[in-house]
Design a protein around this nucleic acid. Structure first.
Lengths: 137, 137
DNA sequence: GCTTGAGTCTGTAGTCGCTACAGATCGTAT
DNA sequence: ATACGATCTGTAGCGACTACAGACTCAAGC
């Protein structure tokens, strides 16, 4: 592999990951501390790959701890595919639960806004939904 | 109104709000500092109502700043119903955006898990989705 | 009267995943 | 020589809690 060393700014550009975030990942051990050219961090193709992986996993909503686990499994070769699957499946459950939560919120909010637009209510439909009226000091 | 003074533990029980959280709300000015009986906080029916309101608004996903605004509007009477409506509508937009985000995640995750269960793939479908393979060091 | 236990008090620090500085230093172009 | 941009370290802030430690108060039981 030729001399493909890049600085942190270029790594940031290539991965779409904020510079401060890259240094943060290094601090918490998610990215390895790269060698230095002078005092500047010097990254290679591996780092671009690894950081891209982290970023995509984050976009799928994995926590940093989960990303750490995924990275460990990814390095271990595809023997660990079943473990990856389980991690993903459990995360998927989380995501679905969050969607369900948000949908419940959505329904109540949408109903209140609709009732408000209808303007029949004597009070305020949303405040009523929140149990306001006489109860709030 | 008779002597319905309660302590923080009872307020917590009645609203389902953690004691530490109640004190936190007081610190940030979301709940008023109640009078003391000795050195213990002494709450009344108003506080139960107000804290219940806060809790329900939080359950609908409003931020504490939004809750603060809602509380202000709730106190002002229903003259401010339009403002409440706008706050809710803008929050609803947020909620819907978050749902859309999560659904995108859900789709990718579900696909990967399904592919993994099919077990046709030479590598690991999820790791592939993350762009792993040769790219992760 | 004395102890025990539950409840409450204050103050501070931790969580997660960044983000935003301040102030120093480095490397290059003019 | 100097200006400019990129990078460096270290620290503090966000939101919304949560989790202590260590002191205190209060009522009941023996």
């Amino acid at each position: 592999m030729a001399d493909s060393a890049i600085q942190i700014g270029e790594l940031s550009r290539r991965t779409g990951c904020n510079i401060e975030t890259i240094r943060y990942y290094e601090r918490i051990g998610l990215m390895p501390a790269p060698p230095r050219r002078g005092r500047y961090r010097s990254y290679g193709a591996d780092d671009v790959g690894r950081l891209g992986f982290v970023r995509r996993a984050r976009e799928l909503g994995f926590t940093l701890d989960e990303v750490r686990a995924l990275l460990g499994l990814a390095v271990g070769g595809n023997a660990s595919c079943a473990e990856v699957r389980n991690l993903a499946a459990s995360h998927l459950k989380d995501v679905r639960a969050r969607i369900a939560d948000l949908k419940r919120m959505e329904r109540v909010l949408a109903d209140s806004v609709r009732d408000c637009d209808a303007g029949q209510d004597p009070g305020c439909p949303l405040l009523d939904a929140l149990g306001a009226a006489a109860r709030v000091a």
